[in-house]
Design a protein around this nucleic acid. Sequence first.
DNA 1: ATGAAAGCGCTAACAC
DNA 2: GTGTTAGCGCTTTCAT
Lengths: 338, 338
Amino acid sequence: MADDGDEAAKRPVTIYDVARAAGVAPSTVSRAFARPGRVNADTAARIRQVAAELGYRANPMAQALSTSRTKMIALMISDVTNPFYSELIRGAQLAASEAEYTVLLADARESDVVERLSLERVLPAVEGIVIGSSRMSDSSLRVIAKQKPTIVLNRDVAGLPSVVTDNPRGVRRAVEHLGELGHQQITYVAGPEASWADGARWRALREAGHELELHTRRVGPVPPTVVGGRGVVEKLLDNLPTAVLAYNDLVAIGLMRGLAAAGIDVPRDVSVIGFDNIMAAELVTPGLTTVAAPLRTMGVTAVKNLQAIINGALHRSEAAFVLPTRLVQRESTARARR
Amino acid sequence: MADDGDEAAKRPVTIYDVARAAGVAPSTVSRAFARPGRVNADTAARIRQVAAELGYRANPMAQALSTSRTKMIALMISDVTNPFYSELIRGAQLAASEAEYTVLLADARESDVVERLSLERVLPAVEGIVIGSSRMSDSSLRVIAKQKPTIVLNRDVAGLPSVVTDNPRGVRRAVEHLGELGHQQITYVAGPEASWADGARWRALREAGHELELHTRRVGPVPPTVVGGRGVVEKLLDNLPTAVLAYNDLVAIGLMRGLAAAGIDVPRDVSVIGFDNIMAAELVTPGLTTVAAPLRTMGVTAVKNLQAIINGALHRSEAAFVLPTRLVQRESTARARR
DNA sequence: ATGAAAGCGCTAACAC
DNA sequence: GTGTTAGCGCTTTCAT
């Protein structure tokens, strides 16, 4: 009952049109929307009324130009296609729209060049940036970060605020689980060397293994994908462990498929644990036991903190926000039989 | 070798700064970037040089305000979390960035209310919209479409340009495949009633069944998710078919899990075919035979066509762009044994 | 080929 | 509380 763009959908309704129709000055219209308190209640009401009738919609570009607040943030991720990001994007969207912000999704397509380029392109349009699993170097990230408020995900760049998962605890739980099942040695299938999470996980595994007196070994690195996991099976075969911890779920799934193809049964012959708990983890057979990351919460947290920084609350909080993980037990782990 | 924002990263470099440093008028700087032809080659070179040294970056908001071209398009999808969209987003991004456009990702979270709201919010900021699997009514879509160039995906709204997959051919191939395997009856597990694709698929199945003399039946509708598929198993049990065609891969996967839980083997006891060929289709066991949609191409096509419309090429091309499908055979289909 | 000036739609002082 | 007046950074006539 307000939308009647019969024909003249050409020139958009401006603040001036509303001002004229309501018999007030343009600035008053502006106030009526931005600072309702600073304007007479009736006047405000009338203005809103007229605006609605006219179908007035503020021009965000003009607002942005004038206030230099674009109400947009960028979410840069290394690969939209990676299911890891689905829930994360959802979370980011949620938090952003709550604050009336819009998110510009940028996809690095696994390339640091593409990443830098798209970052450059969106930078001037946004108030802040959330960078998920960047492919760029720490120094490049710092260059970006000094231009706009930035927050990194799953990575620890000295001086930049970040949101990460509690890898040590997660790994610890996984190792305990394996220990309870009687496993004596655990092989870690490593992901990209540039990945901060990879380092954190392997380190944590070594420590936990040491404490719990389990042998640990590391193979890889492999690409963080299903084919990456599948490709490493051969190397595993030489010296088949009874348990493996994979860099992430995708690698774990590839691994399981490769093992199956080689006639090795999971979990009877070897137990497999992944990381992240992406949707596919519960769809595969056997269901994948995994160290679940609070994907959606990560997105929410990142955006909320970014907003805090934008609004001048937090400064460069050196400390990383660390989010809890939990072990989701499915069917890919079982009692050791060797 | 151009980025030295030592300290004064505060006020961004404007066209005026460049103009002064290069000893020309601001308008000339503007020209040098927008219409290199209309400016003396040396002058242009000098300007570019100076601009690079100063680290000049055009303010997109100011450009947009002045030209009313925001260089942004919106991609509205019903659920970011649905893997169906991953490749599609990738495709859209690719096409957009090729044309130097940025995409605003909007997530309807399966709600027509959220969808309308976010659409309203992004509308003024973009030059056009791609709507994937909308939850809104045809008339609401038309209201949107008359405000900005719009293109719909997987849906046929009279008068609006659209990009769809060739459901009839896809279904036909699936049915032929099943026929060759000796199946006599096919049950269709329906998706959301509001889904255009659902209607198209069921209709196509009926026709193909008729032509090839196979019995067809329909159960559902169910939500287009794994749990949706799983929930329909019970209904199937009454009168177990030898073959089922599911609304999409997610439903098919849920179905397979439900059947397995009920002690029914796929494909020995019943063959299952899905739609879309999302990544999970090849990860599940058995691998899912499915009618693959050219996901990425859909994204690319939608954006390219949208751009064509924005640039005034196509008008409201009544005809839908139909993209080919292909049957991907995996392990969920086998010879009928009943 | 270049400069000067007006204006895109909105907000933000600054008056009254 | 409301009107007036400048801009925000860029593009675009219109002169020259």
